[in-house]
């Protein structure tokens, strides 16, 4: 398949130009592929590998190493809740339980409408604002049940209206063109 090669031809060219060695462009290209394919599927890995002339196994290794690449399909919004030590002391575990209960999915599960995926992650460096989560790379801090309800309501409205905040890929594309 050549999904990103067609869809993001200009961006890929822009990204490749920024590195002395093609292989080094693997992480931004993986973000593009993840956006285009929905997640880091085997086809996505193969396409990135083909573009960069590297082994697909290498792409798989990177997607396994970095927690921002999802090898299984995920929802539109990925809620990555920190349950590392500091957050745990501020009730992160109970918070995770509450979130799962509200959305009706287990950890790593995706809601039936395909909007939300719940994940737990290690420290995101916002211990003073615990409990917290990261939603599509944006931090939501000092969370409690009320704030979480507001967040979910806002995201649902955003998804319905079609007006979305710039995604990581759009940031990458801006970077590629700069």
């Amino acid at each position: 398949m050549a999904l990103i090669a067609e869809k993001y031809a200009e961006e890929i060219e822009g990204i490749l130009k920024r590195f002395p060695d093609k292989k080094s462009a693997v992480l931004p290209l993986m973000h593009l592929a993840q956006q285009a394919y929905g997640h880091m599927s085997r086809e996505a890995m193969q396409e990135v590998a083909d573009i960069l002339e590297i082994s697909p196994t290498h792409v798989l290794a990177l997607s396994g190493f970095y927690s921002l690449y999802y090898e299984e399909p995920v929802g539109k919004y990925v809620l990555e809740i920190c349950n590392d030590l500091a957050c745990a002391l501020r009730g992160a575990d109970e918070f995770v339980e509450m979130v799962c209960h509200k959305l009706g999915v287990p950890v790593d599960g995706t809601t039936a409408d395909g909007l939300f995926t719940v994940k737990t992650v290690m420290c995101l460096g916002a211990c003073d604002r615990a409990p917290m989560l990261q939603c599509n790379l944006k931090f939501e801090e000092h969370l409690d049940e009320e704030k979480f309800d507001q967040l979910i309501a806002r995201l649902r409205a955003e998804a319905e209206s079609g007006k979305e905040e710039p995604s990581v890929v759009e940031k990458i594309m801006a970077y590629a063109k700069s």
């Binding site: 082994s55 196994t57 798989l60 396994g64």
Partner: peptide, 19 residues
């Protein structure tokens, strides 16, 4: 022949191949 590599981290680390 870089056809094997590490996948995941920590104690879940495993050797994988896609070839």
């Amino acid at each position: 022949d870089p056809v094997i590599d590490f996948h995941n981290r920590g104690r879940r680390l495993e050797i994988v191949t896609l070839s």
